[in-house]
């Protein structure tokens, strides 16, 4: 049932386009490497293609080490040290932003493209009042004066539903709970109404109940500010709640990307199935797809990255990298033997 080679190639471009309108952000063949002991640097992102439409929320799930944070930060031109962007393009609002000068990029960050980070209490400057930190975003990027910036900061603190926002303006980060600090980080990300927000595992450090509140808030505010969002998470279940499309990242590659319903109802890549099974409550499903991870850190130089863990891998999987093939409307999978759902 696999597709012919010509068909596959003609389809791969569409994977990043996603629809008819020009995308807001179009990541093309983004490759990031880290220097390794050997001569050959280690590839952490192996050619990411991903496009996001204006106002769309795209989820990106993957296990630790898949390259999620590297992707989030490379989009802003700041791969985690000592990583290096080895190739690819990021088109945003009509410009290839990876070729912009550092100062032009800086003006985009926090203004048109912003990021919500996890572990927010460490991410806020411990010596500055949170109100000043939020207001400085408006001062730097929108050029508004101090008083107006503080008014905007207070307003956005209200929007992120911090209790007693007037008082919190003068609080220092150590005086806030984790959930409140996360709201402050969201306020900083959204005060300039950016076109694109990247949420990098933003709620991972919080209690489950607070997590749900923060996520709902994030989705609501992104919609209100007209921002598209790339929602990065380790938890595939969370993405089901409010993402329009979901991409599955494995070992620096997108192995499957699909609108929400097909991804959850007809997952095609064996890894996606394993992920869903791992989060499933059905022991039967879990047992059938959870395979022992013997060698999860091993990198494959050829073939499918998942081949060593895949229960249905064939000889071809170990020699030739499968292309991203369209198996349904907007549903792409990087597998020679996608799972079919009758």
């Amino acid at each position: 049932m696999s597709l012919g080679a010509a068909e596959v190639i003609s389809n791969t471009r569409n994977a990043s386009a996603g629809g008819d309108k020009p995308p807001l952000i179009d990541i093309r063949n983004l490759r990031v490497t880290f220097p390794s002991g050997g001569a050959e640097p280690k590839a952490v992102l192996k050619g990411i293609d991903l496009a996001v439409q204006p106002g769309e929320i795209v989820g990106l799930v993957g296990e630790s080490g898949a390259g999620k944070t590297t992707l989030a930060r490379s989009i802003l031109g700041l791969p985690p040290s000592p990583g290096r962007i080895a190739g690819g393009e990021v088109h945003f609002e009509g410009r290839q932003i990876l070729s912009l000068s550092e100062s032009e990029l800086r003006r985009l960050r926090g203004r048109r493209l912003s990021v919500v980070v996890p572990n927010p209490r460490a991410e806020l400057n411990p010596l500055l009042k949170v109100g000043d930190q939020i207001a400085s975003m408006a001062k730097i990027h929108l050029g508004v004066a101090g008083k107006e910036a503080r008014r905007m900061a207070l307003e956005i603190l209200r929007e992120v539903q911090i209790p007693d926002p007037e008082r919190r303006m003068d609080a220092y980060p150590h005086e806030l709970s984790g959930g409140m600090a996360q709201r402050v980080v969201i306020a900083m990300a959204l005060i300039c109404s950016p076109a694109f927000v990247i949420s990098d595992d933003a709620t991972s450090g919080l209690d489950v109940t607070v997590q749900a509140q923060i996520l709902a808030l994030l989705a609501k505010l992104a919609a209100e500010h007209g921002s598209a969002m790339l929602f990065i998470s380790r938890d595939v279940g969370i993405t089901a709640h409010f993402c329009d499309r979901i991409a599955v990242l494995f070992s620096g590659e997108i192995v499957e990307i699909a609108p929400r319903e097909p991804l959850f109802l007809e997952p095609a890549h064996p890894y996606t199935l394993m992920l869903l099974a791992a989060f499933s409550h059905s022991p039967k499903l879990r047992d059938s797809w959870t395979v022992p991870d013997t060698d999860r850190r091993r990198e494959r130089s050829a073939g499918c990255q998942y081949a060593d863990r895949c229960p249905i891998a064939q000889p071809v999987c170990r020699t030739l990298r499968p292309p991203l093939a369209e198996i349904g409307p907007g549903h792409f999978v990087r597998c020679y033997f996608p799972v079919r759902h009758a």
């Binding site: 800086r106 960050r109 926090g110 912003s114 980070v117 460490a122 991410e123 730097i140 990300a189």
Partner: peptide, 16 residues
């Protein structure tokens, strides 16, 4: 540190 990195991610000028 995390907070300096976050400031850079937020587009805060390097001098600041």
């Amino acid at each position: 540190s995390d907070f300096s990195r976050f400031e850079v991610l937020c587009g805060v000028p390097q001098n600041l």
